[in-house]
């Protein structure tokens, strides 16, 4: 696997995205909407009750950060999962699989693109929201960024599960849409994870996005961390960063081999 291949795949994704009219505008617009909807619905609610539930009275900031983190961290999962399907449909997946290590390099380039895209589609609404709502970060942006960047690694690992699912099942549009919103709920985009029943909370904790969303919010808004301190939450996220890519790669390679043993990666 070569860095040149990864960078070439990254450049191709950038070029393609710029050549689809409205690609960036609609992505940015969607993030704004994801933040504005709960903000508008919850306006005039009981802030004291909200603070008692979440540990912060900053409702706007809570929702804004939730939406931005969701778009930045959760969306790449589907970008990468759907990449296989899209390449299958347009016919280029076989071309990539015909190159020596093309599938891994293309995925690497895609991961870089997703990181870049996340910075844009979450960063702009995040900055706009802070100015618009007059929010003040009580703690460090740098720590929040660290949660975000480190959290991206297990998310890429998790996306390999989604990729494997798409390779195996092929027609996965409805399933992916359902999973996407379920993950949004489970990661605590709208509701604090600590409010979930124990079993649901356990599922939430197994998702790296939960730790990113919580870490970003807690770092910026001074809310309590899931395990009480940023160090313990960060260690939990680091564990995800080690386990998730390894597990994801194992599952993906297993499914890929099974698919090749059957009718192949190019068929749809």
């Amino acid at each position: 696997m070569s860095w040149t291949g990864v960078m070439a795949a990254f450049r191709v994704k950038i070029k393609e995205s710029l050549r689809y009219r409205g690609y960036w505008i609609s992505d940015l617009g969607f993030t704004f909407l994801m933040a504005l909807l709960p903000i508008m619905i919850g306006r005039g609610g009981d802030i004291d009750a909200f603070e008692a539930l979440t540990g912060t009275g900053n409702y706007y900031g809570y929702m804004l950060l939730g939406a931005c983190t969701f778009m930045a961290i959760d969306a790449p999962l589907w970008q990468m999962g759907n990449w296989f399907r899209r390449e299958q449909q347009i016919g280029t997946l076989q071309s990539i699989y015909l190159t020596p290590d093309g599938s891994m390099e293309a995925l690497g380039g895609l991961a870089l693109f997703c990181l870049f895209r996340s910075c844009i589609i979450a960063g702009i609404p995040f900055a706009t929201g802070f100015v618009w709502f007059g929010l003040e970060p009580s703690r460090g942006i740098i720590l929040a960024l660290a949660f975000f960047i480190v959290g991206f690694i297990p998310v890429c690992g998790l996306s390999l599960f989604i990729g494997a699912l798409v390779l195996r099942l092929k027609e996965t549009g409805a399933l992916l849409n359902t999973l996407q919103m379920s993950f949004g709920l489970l990661m605590g985009m709208w509701v604090q994870v600590s409010l979930f029943p124990v079993a649901v909370r356990a599922v939430s904790y197994s998702l790296p996005m939960t730790w990113v969303a919580s870490g970003v919010r807690a770092s910026i808004m001074g809310m309590p961390y899931l395990f009480g301190s940023w160090e313990s939450d960060f260690i939990a996220l680091l564990m995800h960063s080690i386990i998730m890519p390894v597990l994801g790669a194992m599952v993906f390679l297993y499914v890929e081999k099974r698919v090749k043993m059957n009718s192949g990666v190019g068929s749809f």
């Binding site: 040149t4 291949g5 960078m7 191709v12 071309s95 990539i96 093309g102």
Partner: peptide, 17 residues
């Protein structure tokens, strides 16, 4: 090949792969 890219961009991409 990728239809949104030029022919040269396609060759460059696959050359890199």
């Amino acid at each position: 090949i990728y239809w949104k890219l030029t022919g040269r961009e396609n060759l460059d991409y696959f050359g890199a792969l």
